[in-house]
Design a protein around this nucleic acid. Structure first.
Lengths: 213, 213
DNA sequence: GAGCGATGTTACCGTACGGTAACATCGGGC
DNA sequence: GCCCGATGTTACCGTACGGTAACATCGCTC
């Protein structure tokens, strides 16, 4: 005789509620234990739901991850400065926009640890899980990247590479900030330290004007 | 009746040979399957050695990793330009040295996928394995970092941050190159593309002189 | 109110893992 | 010749996992 079988899901007999519980549980487990500890059992336990329901509604843990990516969305349209790609031929303002978008992207990452988990996962394994996540992410990211790299005039002058290297550095530092308090003297675990990182990135992105930094 | 029990280790009854075989097997498995697939069974199978020997000689998979880090060494003294920290007060030559060391460090990483595996692992989990690796790595890296960041005069002018961001970007791109052919338009899977990345890093590191790039 | 599909739960299977006990075998010291 | 520690191998245990069959229950349709 189990003690409390009826006290499980708030909305008793609703498929949608169960799906939401599983998606929430996925997020919970990822934030709490990291992707290495992610497992079917952990998710269904956190969701307070029977294991077969996960397989019935999402087919698989990979399916659950894909559904999570689709419904929650992640790392898309994080640009903070107005409509995409509508910028004057003014170099300075365009560079400013690029810098702002770099910073906005990094702030988004820092605020969304689950996305960071998956980005890190892609570095360590080419599993079905990371592949599922990568495809969903690329779908979300494509318009953003187009905005950021779409200006041929800007790219031709080699600035593309500066953007890319700053972006790569910000991704790495954001991932690293989850578990390491610092990197080569930079504080990653405090808001102040992170503000330093972002300011540095902003300065580098606006580089051709002010070469001294 | 097994077919060939006596045809296992080349040097039959030597503890050192078995240890070497296990260390080699660790490296093999890491390079072949990645760190996510690393397990005691995989290592002993690749080494052609009984499982208890790993526990007897290294205590643990973590112990094997630590021993591997100690004996093989990794990501240490990769600086390519002469003795450490002996540079004239000439700014240009010092920046050149820094740029060379950044490039040398990145090339080292690219040539040592196992180190990349562990660096990526540290991003996804704070496991005993990654902790063991991190401590061993920091021991090796300390003098290198001292060379690279030890010059207070240089640091004071904010150049420290440029170095750090380039370093972070190179680490990320090196990790990413293992499983993703490109990143935001950069080719990471070819030597030519990687040369582009390194040249870009070199230019940025020598930035205060030539602001245009 | 009978039927039936959707929802939920229990219990189980096969597998792979980390780790260990028990048993063979070698090899040098006396 | 004998002994004993070191080396190596087999077989096993408990556990946790992914995945599924079987059974219970709800709720809507007609």
């Amino acid at each position: 005789m189990p003690a409390d079988p009826p006290s499980r899901s708030a909305t008793p007999g609703s498929r949608g509620a169960t799906e939401e519980a599983l998606l929430d549980a996925l997020e919970t487990v990822l934030q709490r234990d990291g992707l290495r500890q992610l497992s079917v059992n952990a998710v269904v336990e956190a969701a307070g739901v029977g294991k077969p329901l996960l397989y019935r509604y999402f087919g698989d843990l990979q399916g659950l991850v894909q559904a999570w990516g689709k419904r929650r969305g992640f790392w898309a349209e994080v640009a903070g400065t107005g409509p995409p790609s509508h910028h004057k031929p003014d170099d300075q303002s365009f560079r400013q926009q690029i810098a702002d978008e770099l910073v906005a992207s990094a702030e988004y990452l820092r605020a969304h640890p689950v996305t960071l988990e998956f980005l890190a996962e892609e570095l360590t394994a080419t599993s079905d899980l990371s592949a599922a996540f990568a495809s969903a992410r690329e779908d979300c990211r494509r318009p953003y990247l187009k905005t950021m790299l779409g200006d041929r005039r800007y790219l031709r002058r080699g600035n593309h590479r500066v953007i890319v290297i700053i972006h790569a550095a910000l991704i790495y530092l954001a991932m690293r900030s989850r578990r390491s308090p610092n990197f080569m003297g930079l504080r990653l675990d405090t808001d102040a330290g992170w503000r330093d990182v972002l300011n540095m990135a902003r300065e580098l992105a606006r580089l051709p004007e002010n070469a001294r930094n």
